[in-house]
Structures are given as structure tokens and as C-alpha cells.
């Protein structure tokens, strides 16, 4: 059995804004049913890629097919079966929730009973049915985010593009959005989710592309990505005069990197942690200074770029 044809297929995609090359040869395939994470810092090119996939902008190079049938991004067919959740709250905040949904549903040719049915269903799904007549500007940030999401589901898309949909969202709404998206994904919706929070990507996505400066630096499942790190554990402690001697001694047993006032010690594979604690004790450093971490996407990003995701 051959694998299903990808719902998004990018080959060498280039997008420039004047002198800025926002996407510099992006190639990736996304299979139907995937929950794909696009992880990268601000300015990496996530939104640009999203807008190319949704056909808002034209490519300067490469090919980009959407919707599995080789339809070019932006074609009528591709747009009809796609939902974009913009990074900003793209709603008419003076209008009520349902008035907004009527407008956006109308753009997909929905009307009458069918439209009202879809509005009921998406409002129910994001738990805003009881606030449907209130103007959007009276909503909390989290509620607006949920409605922003709901508005992108009116046309029952096959592919949902979420561009940092949890920015400025309270934890409760955030969880609600996560659970909702996971549930939709289980029901078969393909989702591309961009974020600069590695926790979100780790929690939600089955496959992740790490993007920086318009290039995909790494692509794979979490396990595949983390396997690329040459260590299994990372120990962090505050860097300073008190720990300078320790860092010098540890360098013999692995790699020590200092970043943002924190030293990160990555022991060589097989290095026993017992001897690490023996050394710290000798330096008179209390155990609570040290935290041990499994390798993370953050660490991978650091490894790949020498920077942190939030820089």
C-alpha cells in the first residue's frame, strides 16, 4: 500500500519581501490526518509559510501544492477546503459572535439553514453558544481566540492552519483550545500548528518542523528529533563566580554551555550521575541549585542555532 498523497507538498519554496528572504527553500510534505507543528522563534517565517499555503501571497520560487490533488495553493478548490486561523483576532469586534460567523460563513457560499446549522455547531464546539449575541469586543482574550478558531471551521475544512492561536490566552482557554484541536485531529482533520512554545509543539504535534530564518532545520517526530541530540540528560545550574570552578572541572566529562545566566552541563553518554554529585559536594554547592532535564526541543533548537526559541 502506497502512502496517502500529501495534503500539503512544498518543494523549495522561496518568499522574499524586498531584501528580506522570509522563506529560503522550504520543502516538506504533510500527510492527511497529521497534527504538524511548525516550531520557530519570531520572524522565523511561520506566518509567511501559512499565508502561502492559504494562498494569500504568491511564491517567489518553488512549488506548493495543497489539498492532495496537486492543486496550487490559492486555487479556488484549495481555498474551499482550507481554514486559516490568523495570528491576530481577525473578527469584526463591533459585531456579535453570530454576526461575524454569518459573514464568514457567507463567504463560503453558506446560507439559510445550512449556515445557521454550522454556526450553532462551531459555537457549541468552542463553548460560546451562550454568548452568541454579545459583541466580540465584550469577550475576554481567550473567548476571542476561541471564536477566531470557530470562524475558521465553518466550511468544515480538511486542512486547518493555526498560526500561533494561543498568544495572549489564559491557561483555561488554552487548554480548551488544545483539547478541541486534538479532538478534531482524531476525527480526521489535518492541522498545521505554528508556535514558538516548544511545550505546545511537544504536547500537541505528531510531527514537527523546526524553522529558523526561513529554513526548515529539522523535521520529524518528537522522538526522531530528540534522538539527534548527542546527550540524554542536561543539568542546569546558575552560572556565577561560585560555580565557575565547577564548570571548569565538568568540562572534562561532557559539554558545558552558558546561556542566559544558566550553565548547561551535558554529560557524555554513560557518565554516571553519582560522580557528578560527588563533584558538586566537593565544591560545597547545595543540590537544590541543580535541575536535571531530559533533552527537549528547546535544547535541540539551541544545538541547531546557538540561540533559544524566545530570543
Amino acid at each position: 500500500m502506497s502512502p496517502p498523497s500529501p495534503i500539503v507538498s512544498a518543494k523549495g519554496v522561496v518568499k522574499r519581501f524586498g531584501p528580506v528572504t522570509a522563506l529560503d527553500g522550504v520543502s516538506l510534505d504533510i500527510a492527511p490526518g497529521e497534527f504538524f507543528g511548525l516550531l520557530g522563534p519570531n520572524g522565523a517565517g511561520k506566518s509567511t509559510l501559512m499565508s502561502l499555503i492559504s494562498g494569500l501571497k504568491s511564491l517567489d520560487g518553488g512549488t506548493l501544492n495543497v489539498n492532495g490533488e496537486g492543486a496550487a495553493a490559492g486555487s479556488a478548490g484549495a481555498r474551499r477546503s482550507l481554514g486559516l486561523v490568523p495570528q491576530h483576532i481577525a473578527l469584526y469586534t463591533d459585531l456579535s459572535a453570530e454576526a461575524n460567523l454569518r459573514i464568514f460563513g457567507g463567504l463560503y457560499g453558506l446560507r439559510g439553514r445550512a449556515l445557521e446549522g454550522r454556526i450553532d455547531s462551531v459555537l457549541e464546539a468552542v463553548q460560546l453558544a451562550d454568548r452568541r449575541r454579545d459583541p466580540v469586543k465584550a469577550f475576554s482574550g481567550g473567548m476571542q481566540r476561541r471564536l477566531n478558531l470557530a470562524a475558521s471551521l465553518l466550511n468544515e475544512p480538511r486542512l486547518l492552519l493555526c498560526d500561533e492561536p494561543t498568544v495572549g490566552v489564559d491557561p483555561q482557554s488554552r487548554n480548551a483550545i488544545f483539547e478541541f484541536l486534538k479532538e478534531r485531529n482524531r476525527a480526521g482533520l489535518t492541522i498545521i500548528y505554528s508556535t514558538h512554545y516548544m511545550e505546545e509543539a511537544t504536547r500537541l504535534c505528531s510531527r514537527i518542523g523546526i524553522i529558523d530564518h526561513g529554513r526548515i532545520l529539522a523535521l520529524g517526530t518528537i522522538d526522531e528529533l530528540l534522538a539527534r541530540l548527542p546527550f540524554e540528560e542536561e543539568i542546569r545550574y546558575p552560572s556565577g563566580p561560585a560555580t565557575a570552578a565547577l564548570a571548569a572541572e565538568l568540562a572534562a566529562f561532557g559539554e558545558v554551555a552558558s546561556l542566559d545566566g544558566t550553565d548547561r552541563f551535558r554529560p557524555r553518554p554513560g557518565y554516571p550521575l553519582s560522580s557528578f554529585y560527588a563533584i558538586t559536594e566537593r565544591h560545597g554547592l547545595a543540590p537544590r541549585l541543580f535541575t536535571s532535564q531530559r533533552p527537549t526541543l528547546e535544547a535541540l533548537f539551541l544545538q541547531l542555532t546557538g540561540r533559544t526559541l524566545r530570543e
Binding site: 490568523p86 481577525a90 464568514f104 463567504l107
Partner: peptide, 13 residues
């Protein structure tokens, strides 16, 4: 500015 064009233009409009 509000990004509404993105939403509108990602639809068949």
C-alpha cells in the same frame, strides 16, 4: 490591520 483580509482572502473571496 486586524488581519481580517487574511481570513476573507483565505476563503473563496
Amino acid at each position: 490591520a486586524s488581519g481580517i483580509f487574511q481570513r476573507v482572502l483565505s476563503s473563496p473571496a
